[in-house]
Amino acid sequence: MTSVSLQGKAARPEAPKMNGSSVPWNKKTKQSKTLSDHIADGLIAILVVAIILVVLYPLWFIVIASFSDPTKVAIGEVLTLPKGTNFTGYTKIFADSRIWTGYKNTLIYAFAGTALNMVVTLPAAFALSRSEFKPRRIIMFLFTFTMFFGGGLIPSYLLYKQIGILNSMWVFILPGAVSVYNLIIARSFFETSIPEELHDAAQIDGMSYIGYFVRIVLPLSSAIIAVIALYYFVGHWNDYFTGLIYIRDASKQPLQNVLQSILLANQTNSNSAGMTAVAAQRFAEQIKYGVIIVSTLPLLVMYPFLQKYFNKGVMIGAIKG
């Protein structure tokens, strides 16, 4: 008797509901912890706390720097709390109405783009993970080659112009449809984490490749789907270059480009002399920190929703006795 069933659509094996703990070895056997376990726990706790502190402090610094007087930040007076608190950085950022168009555009491009990414990348990764598919070697080689060699900016620009995607939403979505890096990672996951025996069973039952992929592989791959979706989404979110080169209308610019132009509007380069140089510089520093917060917050809010896909344990072929 096993706990796996393949009635109709593959039912995703349920991890037995234990007391909120996700640590595997505590699931079934309720052994009491030995001394070495406690020591291990203690060591781990110390390490984790140390890591959190080391990571957390600079992050905290960014938050308080975005509220502080930039002069005080520069001379090192800002350590644990904001000094000379003011919201000028943020008012300058949000006073610019383009920021809301920026947010809107980025959300559209990121979601639409990621959707296309997943639809194109995952099936391809699956197909290329099939060892019996002989052309996969040459295809992978040709794909990997493009990670290193490219024609550069100008040929790409001319191409986009010719197919008419310049200065439109599609330039954010189409050219980047496949990231070979993500493809390789997804392919590697399919190769190693889905046991071939499942395919045997599926074949015996007359399932085609597509059927197998959709009904069995995908449901079991929630972890890698979440990771690749995250990578693609963040790639779209942080993309500054596409908007810079290929977009003319300010109304189509995504968030990163809007933020950069706000930052630049408050900066001068070292060739600009005069008191404007000194004056503008001061707020540019503060805006720099604020920009990070503004552009990252949505991502941070989104992440916990994806996290649960990484933490679920997968039980394939659980056996008893």
């Binding site: 391809a124 699956f126 493009t146 024609g151 550069g152 040929p155 790409s156 449809a177």
Partner: peptide, 20 residues
């Protein structure tokens, strides 16, 4: 399953490669 990816990469990565 693999053709869409081939098309995208062929068009957007290989066509501009003459710039090299």
């Amino acid at each position: 399953m693999v053709t869409p990816a081939i098309c995208f990469i062929g068009l957007f990565a290989y066509v501009p490669m003459y710039g090299v």
